[in-house]
Amino acid sequence: MHGRRWHRVRWLLIGAVLAVAAVPWWLWQTPLRWGPLPVYVWYHIGWMGLVTLVFIRFARRWWEPLGTIGSTQGDAD
């Protein structure tokens, strides 16, 4: 039970970081370009790649323990 709670907190934190850092706030008002796109658009493309990798790992390893009905309390069935 303890381990499950820890994983839950850890994935919540990871999810929060994925959402918050999806916009490169530290580049705010900094004009940068690489090729046809502003640098923050490149950052976005890279970040979505990272998000995909994290999601793949989450879906493979931790999906079930977090959300299965009945894992928290008594199951009716």
């Binding site: 490169p24 008002q29 940068l32 370009r33 090729g35 046809p36 502003p38």
Partner: peptide, 21 residues
């Protein structure tokens, strides 16, 4: 081409290259 498009973006709309605003 892509490079020309980028240069044109920089010249015509420099504000687009900076996040926010």
């Amino acid at each position: 081409g892509l490079g020309a498009l980028g240069t044109q973006l920089q010249v015509e709309r420099p504000g687009f290259l900076a996040l926010g605003g």
